[in-house]
Structures are given as C-alpha cells and as structure tokens.
C-alpha cells in the first residue's frame, strides 16, 4: 500500500467516524430540550423517505416520474404486497422480481 493513500484513507475514516460518534455521545451528556425530544420520532421516517424516493424516482441520476419507470411499478408492487401480506421479506422479493421482469420484457 502506498503511504499517501494509507494517510488519505485514515483521514477519511476519522472524518466519517466523527460524524457518527459526535451527536451519539454528545446527547448522552446533554439533556435535549423538549421540542427536540418531541421531533425525534419524525427523523427516522424522514430519513427513510430520503433514501427511498431518489432510488425510485431518480434512477440512474435522471428524474423519471412517468408510469413507465419500472422502479415506480416495482415500488407499487412492494407497497401493495407489504400492505396486504404484512410480510416484508415477501414484498422485497416480489419487488425485485417485478423490476427484473419489467426490465426484461419492456
């Protein structure tokens, strides 16, 4: 391994670790104000939405909100399956299968 790359990777690791550890440890010592406490339950659903929406509506870095976008159809299949069957593994598998099928046959 080249020394300069080792240093780069270690510094990248440090930068990443700092973002992960700081709030986790900081809010162990500091009591959060009530309003922050109240807002906490909206963070996970918001973050999940930010991870899901681009993957479905901006595939390959291009906005595609037409019904012909296979990711949207596969997303509908996933949501429909989880609502009907309450089975998350089944919904993930059906979602992936429907995406592959749509890509192959469309």
């Amino acid at each position: 391994m080249r020394t300069d790359y080792v240093i780069l990777i270690l510094l990248m690791g440090l930068a990443t670790y700092l973002t992960r550890v700081s709030f986790l440890v900081f809010f162990k010592k500091v009591k959060m104000p009530d309003i922050i406490y109240r807002s906490l339950k909206y963070i996970p659903v918001s973050i999940l939405a930010t991870l899901i929406f681009p993957g479905i509506f901006i595939p390959n870095d291009k906005l595609d909100i037409a019904i012909t976008n296979p990711y949207i159809i596969a997303g509908v299949v996933t949501v429909g399956t989880v609502l009907i069957s309450k089975n998350s593994i089944l919904s993930i598998i059906l979602g992936i299968i429907s995406l592959v099928a749509l890509r192959t046959f469309l």
Partner: peptide
C-alpha cells in the same frame, strides 16, 4: 432495488 424495497417495507407499516 433491494435497498429501496427494504426501506419501503420498513417505512410503510
């Protein structure tokens, strides 16, 4: 699609 699908299955319920 496994990632958005899994996150959807966590989010919807």
């Amino acid at each position: 699609f496994a990632m958005p699908a899994t996150f959807l299955s966590i989010l919807i319920p």
